[in-house]
Design a binder for these strands. Structure first.
Lengths: 203, 203
DNA sequence: GTCTATATTTCGATAGAC
DNA sequence: GTCTATCGAAATATAGAC
């Protein structure tokens, strides 16, 4: 279910059905916005810029999205789907360092495959918080919210709580390390090295 | 030299000289801006807000700072001073995992003491990048720049490069973990647990 | 669905008095 | 060093034609 997230690029050669299945304008808007929001940040990216890079006008965007924040919300949903089942699993069991480690190791490859979505959130924390503030919706089953809950759980030994946070941070740093310092490392090698690190932190 | 960073709060009781040494307006502006930039982000914080919380008008700010970005730059300097000597040390030697670990362990306590400055940078990466783009100054001896250089160094084994990044991410996550999930853990205990984690990652 | 206007607001920044 | 008043720019968002 999660694998589907990296919306199969049309660069996969001639499709079997012969149908190019061109991306919807809505999807193309999201793709452009994702890149710009990562590069320049949500606030410093104007709708004019997004429209220009897409070859349409600002007004066209408003046909597909009610507001600029609505675009951000749509992108947020991609992460939400991503973490839904993962967090569901850890939410039901009593959280332990061992289970956390298993889960995190499984997530490494998925995080690598969906780098951009995580990068977007890492680099626009303030914008997403503002988003959450105004929708004080009942079920705040957010990914970060779940994280906080587990890491605050008094049933878990202090040492393990810190190690859980640290292991996650280690993976994030490995994947999103400043700029492109790891571009010469293959995904599979990086994945292996990070999973090994997780084991050392939580083992 | 670095210890001086957390600008001795005037809450340290009656000062020996009897002089309360009230903070300069400039410093008070920076303090308010720091909190707001962390909480709402640089872009979503208006000068009007800063001035209001300070009990002055917008125009007063312009007497102390040439622009809004100038305020951000002044805050950036606090981090710059912080990392100058640390990075100087690792810059001269051939970077090794062992040296990196030593340095990182020493930094943990200083990072804990200067949480806010690091948090500011973590949460406003886009704003700081924009700052750096327009000053294509010669000596770009920035903290992040130095990090990139070390982590890209081909002389260092791939495994160690990843572990260096991971160990730093582990510390960052431990200190800035989502919200206040670790508020019940004392600084000294957190420091000890994080340094132990660093050793496990790099040892 | 996309366009050409235009409305509305907010913000950063400046001028000049005190 | 701080104020009042205002400028000019840029952005989000809307109205209505095609």
């Amino acid at each position: 279910m999660v694998q589907k997230l990296h919306t199969a690029p049309d660069a996969s050669g001639p499709s079997p059905a012969g149908d190019p299945e061109p991306k919807s304008t809505r999807e193309r808007i999201l793709d452009v916005a994702l890149d710009l929001f990562i590069d320049k940040g949500f606030d410093k990216t104007s709708l004019r810029e997004i429209a220009e890079q897409l070859g349409v006008t600002k007004a066209a965007l408003y046909y597909h999205f009610a507001s600029k924040e609505d675009i951000l919300m749509a992108l947020h949903m991609r992460l939400h789907e991503f973490g839904a089942e993962a967090m569901g699993r850890i939410g039901t069991h009593e959280p332990t360092a061992a289970l956390w480690g298993e889960l995190l190791e499984e997530m490494v490859d998925q995080m690598l495959a969906n780098r951009k979505i995580f990068l977007l959130h890492e680099r626009n924390q303030a914008a997403f918080e503002a988003l959450h503030r105004q929708e004080h919706e009942a079920a705040h089953d957010d990914l970060q919210e779940q994280f906080r809950k587990v890491l605050s759980d008094p049933r878990v030994p202090t040492r393990d709580r810190v190690r859980m946070a640290a292991s996650f941070g280690a993976v994030m740093a490995g994947i999103f390390v400043a700029g492109n310092a790891f571009d010469d490392i293959s995904s599979s090698e990086l994945s292996q090295l990070l999973r090994s690190t997780v084991r050392d932190v939580l083992g």
